[in-house]
Design a protein around this nucleic acid. Structure first.
Lengths: 229, 229
DNA sequence: TTGTCGGCGGAAGGCCGACAA
DNA sequence: TTGTCGGCCTTCCGCCGACAA
């Protein structure tokens, strides 16, 4: 999807959107004789993040074999904040109020010699879609705001007060934005076509078929609904 | 969902939204030793219609046994039209232009002694949700239009030029509205969580399990994607 | 007959500082 | 410091008849 440096940022964005307790383990997988390999994703409609884990049955019986894939360290430093949205933040009346601490730590520096310093921020969400925001420092007393572009983001992501806005900057200056919802958007399909029962049976059959024929299969791991499978 | 007379209308609405070639057969089911019984539905998001068919394995071996359920005749007459939406119909600039023939045949009569005769139409969609439209006969030359309320319907149903608007009136004066799309809305889940493979396997297992244990099971029949199952 | 347009009035969007919690 | 509000300007919505295909 992106050049090398960007992948780190997407992975960090995924972590931020999923929440601190939702890291996907990849070492213990070996205990069940499945060499790991997973990919982080997000739903198109809700931006709900999930992990797709590709599993292949293995005859390797040593669960203590160190896993080279997980031993890599992140190479760059990240600057990020998460803010719970106020009523004003999500209202169509105005923009987004950036807390001073967040602005100082995470937003690119403004030229403070100007009367009303302003800049355009261009950030990508977890799908790689670009979002533009006007960042301005104005008012009395002075404050940081996101104005033009913010309301489109709120509408497109269907954000309401209580949801959280995720912002991330890499050392190289690349920006990412994301969303963490207070109440997940209900999927239209969950109530109609796809029965949980059918899915569960399908997964079981797929897994056993995979073991018998020694072929690969895929599991989707959704932080919000871990207990389903 | 509704009192008796309304059910007929919903069934007719389902037929109109699915298209003339999409009637759900219910006689030949017997040939496969499944006493029939189905219910028409529509997806919450796209209004795509489908049929949910409940099947129970049967030891009855006479395929020619007449089916009493399908021999009933509809009791009331329906007045309906389907119009392909023009660019103007779906534009936010104005309302919906009702073809004269359609207005004469299907819309409730206006009081033509008025200068600009108008009335409010209240119609339910396939979910039972009410939609209100202002119907007015005005302009030079005179024409039938749906104005206030129409744009909300277009936005909510995500209609674009080329899609079709379905209108239905029963003898009792009850009104129904529906939608038939040129290009189906792609479901966000179809590209992510739910794999066709898992669904297919789930259905097969459910069916064989049903036969073995002689219990009921359910199949969803979607006119647009008959070939999937 | 009916699709599209210009005109226009009103509602909502959205940028601003004021102010108080 | 920052959530909310009144003010005000602009954009877009949406109802109208005109007009031509």
């Amino acid at each position: 999807m992106e050049d090398g440096a960007g992948d780190d940022l997407y992975q960090e964005l995924w972590r931020l959107c999923a929440g601190p307790l939702m890291d996907v383990p990849c070492v213990q997988d070996r205990v069940f004789h499945f060499p790991p390999g997973h990919i982080e994703l997000a739903e198109m409609e809700s931006d709900e993040v999930y992990a797709r884990i590709t599993l292949q049955p293995s005859s390797d019986t040593d669960p203590l074999d160190p896993n080279p894939i997980c031993s890599e360290k992140p190479k760059q430093k990240f600057y990020s904040f998460i803010k719970t949205l106020s009523t004003s933040d999500t209202s169509t009346h105005g923009g987004f109020s950036v807390l001073r601490k967040h602005a100082n730590e995470c937003l690119p520096q403004l030229d403070m010699t100007m009367e009303n310093p302003t800049q355009e921020l261009v950030a990508k969400d977890i799908h790689g879609v670009e979002w533009k925001f006007k960042h301005i420092y104005r008012g009395h007393p002075k404050r940081h705001l996101l104005t033009t572009g913010w309301s489109s983001f709120v509408a497109a992501k269907k954000l309401v007060a209580g949801d959280s806005f995720v912002f991330l900057r890499g050392e190289n200056g690349q920006l990412r934005v994301g969303v963490r919802r207070l109440n997940p958007l209900q999927s239209p399909t969950s109530s109609s076509v796809v029965s949980t029962q059918n899915m569960r049976l399908g997964v079981i059959v797929t897994a056993s078929h995979s073991v018998m024929t020694n072929t690969m299969f895929v599991v989707c791991y959704k932080p919000r609904f871990v207990s389903i499978f």
